[in-house]
Design a protein around this nucleic acid. Structure first.
Lengths: 344, 344
DNA sequence: TTGTACGCGTTATCAG
DNA sequence: CTGATAACGCGTACAA
C-alpha cells in the first residue's frame, strides 16, 4: 500500500532515450520541439501514468497555485457563500483554495496572514475582523509582493483591490422602502461602527431620511453586536421612548429577527404597526412564517468577482499593481415584515 | 514592491560562518548541536527575519502540510460547520485546509481527488456525493498511501476511518418522540436512498415503529430530494390518502419546512393535528415562529473528531493503517412543531 | 559537534 | 530542435 514511487520526467526520458529537459519542454508545449518527439513524450507520459509534481514546480517557480481566504468564521452563511464563489471561479484555473478563520480576532488574523505567506500562496482574499484597526500586518502582504483582494469588509490601503457591495445604497433603499410604506419614525439597529460597512449602512439611512425630509432622531439609533438577543433588547430600549418608532431598519438579519420576536411578544403587529427590514438576506429570512424583508449582498457573485479581480491582477505584468474597486449593487428583497400592501 | 528575495539558511550560514547544514540542524532542534551554535543560529535567523520555505521542505519530505476537504457544497450549513471544526483542530498542528466542491457530481469528485493527490495533500476528508456509487476513485487515494477520513456520508471501504452520527438512532429517537406525543400514523419523508445516512434514518424509523407495535404503512414513505418544494408536494401526496398521517418525520429540515408550509396552507394545526420532526438542526429551525423539532448532528464536533482521527492516523507508524469508525450520538432538539405539551 | 555532498522534480539557460 | 547543467531551498547520510 506504500507505493508512493512516482514517475518523473526523468523516468520518461530514460524510456524513450531523450533528455529530461526535452520531456519537460514537450509537456509544457514549448514551441521549439519536433512534433514527433512531442507526441512520443505525451504518449509515453500517459502510458506511464506520469503526474507532474506540483511541489517541485512550485519550488522552482515560487508559485504555489494556492490562494488563501481569511474570514471571521467559515460557517457563516455569507462567508461560506463568498468562499463558494471564489472556489468555483478559481478551480478551473488550477488554483486551490485554503481557508482560515480569525474568529473576529486580530491576533489570529495576523497569525493566519503569516502562515499563508510562509506557504507562499499566490494571493490572499480577506474580510477583515471586527477588531482590526491597525493595518500593518496587511501591508506586510503587499511588501512580500503577494496580491490581496478585500471582499465585503475592507480597509483603505493604496494598491489593494476590493469587491464590496454599496452598503450606503443598501441602507438608503432599505430606509426609503420603509418611508414609502408610510413610516416616519424609523429606528436603526446599527452594527459595529469599527467596520466601514456598518457606517455606510447608517449613512445611507441618514441620507434617505434627509431626502424625504424626515427629522433625524438620535435616540432611534442603537448600536448592536449583531446577535439575536441584541435585537430584542434594542426594541425594549426603543419602546421606553415616548415617541415609539413605526419602523426598524436593522443592519443585520439576526438583530432584525430578535427585534421581531420582541415586537411580537409585545403584541405589536408587523407590518401594520411596525415595519422591519434586515440586511444580508440570510437564508432563514425567507423561510420565516413572517418572511423578513432584507438587503441581499449577492455573496456568491461577490466571491466570483473577487476571484476575477485576482486573476486579472496576476495576469497583468508583474511590475504594475492594479487597484480595482468593484462595488456591487445591493438588492432589496421585499417580504411581509415590511410590505403593507402585500400583507396577508 | 517586488522584494521577494527571501533569506535562506544559506544566507544565515554565510553570516555566522557555519555550514547550511548546521543552520538547518539548529533550526530543527537536532540534538547533536552545541547550545552555543544553536542559540547563535536562532538569534541571527530572527535578526535576518528568516522564514522557512515550506515548498522546499514539502518537496524534500513529500509532505505538504495541506489536507483536502471534499464536500458537495461549501455553503451548506452542515458542511461549512464540519469544515470549521476541521480547520480549528488542524491549524494548531500546522496544517492548512484546502476545500473542494463536488456539486453532488461524481465526475467533479473524481477530478477533485486527482487534483488533491497531485498537489500531495497529506490527507483527505470527504463526504461523498449523492451520485457516487463506484468507489474506485476513492480506493486510488489509498493506493497512493494518502489517508482518508469520511465524515457523515461514507462508503464502506476497508482501511478507511470515518466519523458519522448514528443515523439509525437519530431516526429512532425522532420517531419514538412522535409516538410519545400520541401519534400513530407517522409518515416519513426519506432522503436519497443511495446514501447510507438516509437508509439508516429510515431503518431507525422502522425499528421505532416496531418497538411500539405500530404497523408499517408503505404509502407513508415518500422519497424526496431534500428540497423545500418536495416537502410540500409530499404532503399533497400524503393527504390524498384515505388514512391521513398524524405525524411526519422528515429526513431533512428543508423538506420538513416545506411540509409545514403545505400543512398550514391546508389549515392543519401543528402540533395539535400533525406533529413534524426534521433532521439536521439547520439554523433556521430554531428561528421559526413555529420552531421545528430536529435531530442535531453536532457538525463542528464531527469536524474536530475527524481531524483527531486523521492526526492519530499519521502519527502512528506509517506501515499500519488504522481503521477507526467513530459514531457520534445524535441529539433531539424538541420544539413546538412536535411538542404538544409545550405548545402555546 | 560540524561540514560536504547529494537529491527531491522541475524548469531555464546556454551550448551545440 | 535537443542535451547537459545549474538552480529552487531544504534536510540528511556520510565523513571528518
Amino acid at each position: 500500500m506504500l507505493q508512493k514511487q512516482k514517475v518523473t520526467i526523468y523516468d520518461i526520458s530514460k524510456k524513450i532515450h531523450v533528455s529530461a529537459a526535452t520531456v519537460s519542454r514537450a509537456l509544457n508545449n514549448n514551441p521549439k520541439i519536433s512534433l514527433k518527439t512531442r507526441e512520443l513524450v505525451i504518449k509515453t507520459a500517459k502510458e506511464m501514468n506520469y503526474k507532474q509534481n506540483h511541489l517541485a514546480k512550485a519550488l522552482k517557480s515560487g508559485k504555489s497555485n494556492n490562494v488563501g481566504i481569511i474570514v471571521p468564521f467559515i460557517n457563516h452563511s455569507f462567508f461560506s457563500s463568498v468562499i463558494r464563489g471564489i472556489e468555483e471561479e478559481l478551480t478551473p484555473h488550477g488554483f486551490h483554495v485554503i481557508i482560515c478563520q480569525t474568529h473576529e480576532n486580530i491576533d489570529n488574523e495576523m497569525d493566519q496572514i503569516d502562515a499563508l505567506l510562509n506557504i507562499q500562496v499566490d494571493g490572499i482574499f480577506m474580510s477583515v475582523s471586527k477588531t482590526t484597526k491597525n493595518t500593518n500586518h496587511i501591508k506586510k502582504i503587499l511588501e512580500e509582493g503577494t496580491p490581496i483582494v478585500f471582499f465585503d469588509r475592507k480597509k483603505d490601503i493604496k494598491g489593494v483591490s476590493s469587491v464590496t457591495i454599496d452598503d450606503f445604497k443598501g441602507g438608503y433603499i432599505a430606509t426609503e422602502h420603509l418611508i414609502l410604506q408610510g413610516c416616519k419614525k424609523i429606528a436603526h439597529l446599527a452594527g459595529d461602527f469599527n467596520l466601514g460597512i456598518y457606517r455606510n449602512r447608517y449613512e445611507g439611512y441618514l441620507e434617505a431620511l434627509k431626502a424625504h425630509d424626515i427629522d433625524f432622531n438620535s435616540s432611534y439609533i442603537i448600536e448592536t453586536n449583531s446577535k439575536v438577543e441584541n435585537g430584542a433588547s434594542a426594541v425594549s430600549k426603543l419602546w421606553e421612548l415616548d415617541e415609539k418608532p413605526d419602523a426598524i431598519f436593522s443592519a443585520g438579519d439576526y438583530t432584525a429577527l430578535g427585534a421581531i420576536q420582541e415586537l411580537k411578544r409585545r403584541k405589536i403587529r408587523i407590518p401594520q404597526d411596525v415595519c422591519v427590514v434586515g440586511f444580508s438576506n440570510e437564508p432563514f429570512t425567507k423561510y420565516m412564517e413572517l418572511p423578513i424583508t432584507s438587503v441581499d449582498q449577492t455573496p456568491v457573485t461577490m466571491g466570483k468577482i473577487a476571484a476575477q479581480v485576482f486573476l486579472e491582477q496576476i495576469k497583468g505584468s508583474q511590475t504594475i499593481t492594479i487597484e480595482k474597486k468593484v462595488v456591487l449593487a445591493p438588492e432589496l428583497y421585499i417580504r411581509n415584515s415590511s410590505a403593507r400592501n402585500l400583507s396577508l
